[in-house]
Amino acid sequence: MIRKILLSIASLFLAWQSINLIRQIEFFSTDNLFLTFLLAWVITLFVTGVFAFLVFAYPIENSLSNSYYSIRQPLLLKKWCNWLKIDYFRQALLMTLWKSKKQQSKYFNGRTDGLQQLNQQTKKSEWGHLFPFIIISFIIIYLIGLQLFRLSLFVLILNIVGNLYPILLQRHHRMRIQQLDSRYNQ
């Protein structure tokens, strides 16, 4: 219970900070390339953090229907994942954030009975990146309207790497889980 309260407070804090940051964005100077990139990173991190904390606290991924999570065109998804080199992204995650076996086992225990847990974790992860991706896309449009082109470009790149790639990776995982489920259920 305390964990949920703390995560909810953290989510609200990041939402408040994100709103304040975006409201003041036109007053920031984007002359310095490093500071502009740092600002883009903070925007992406804050907005993504709002939803990440919610996903850690609540089963909020269930707010989307099962039909959303179902992969209806696996060949098209596979084609996009190959074209965007999602496997390189997955390998980079495994070498950095997901390097420890303990961290990986939270997602998947390696057994067939762990497939349901993995499926649920992919939904949580996807939900935690989908809504930030959408909101940050609107922020990019706002930044373009303010003629902050360099900042909008950096935010776009970070949004693709930090949110779109994880969404596609989770959908790819679920596609493979669906294939295994259909194989085992026959």
Rank of each mutant, 00 (worst) to 15 (best):
I86A: 08
I9N: 05
F28M: 14
N159Q: 06
Q186M: 12
N82S: 13
N163E: 04
Y58H: 01
R111G: 14
P74F: 06
A40K: 03
L93V: 00
Y184P: 11
M1S: 04
I157H: 01
Q186Y: 14
H172K: 10
K4W: 02
R176E: 15
L12D: 09
S105E: 07
I71N: 04
T96Y: 08
Q117H: 03
K4R: 14
L75R: 01
R183W: 15
I167E: 08
V55M: 06
D113I: 12
R150V: 14
H129Q: 01
C81N: 12
H129E: 05
T96L: 06
Q186V: 15
K124A: 02
W41A: 11
K79L: 12
L115M: 14
F53M: 10
P166W: 08
D31W: 05
L21V: 09
L118V: 08
S29V: 01
D113G: 04
G162F: 10
G128W: 03
R90K: 13
N82K: 11
H129C: 01
K102N: 04
I43R: 01
K106A: 13
G145R: 03
I140R: 01
I5E: 13
R23F: 05
R176K: 15
Q116P: 03
L33R: 06
N66V: 02
D31Q: 07
V161S: 10
K85Q: 15
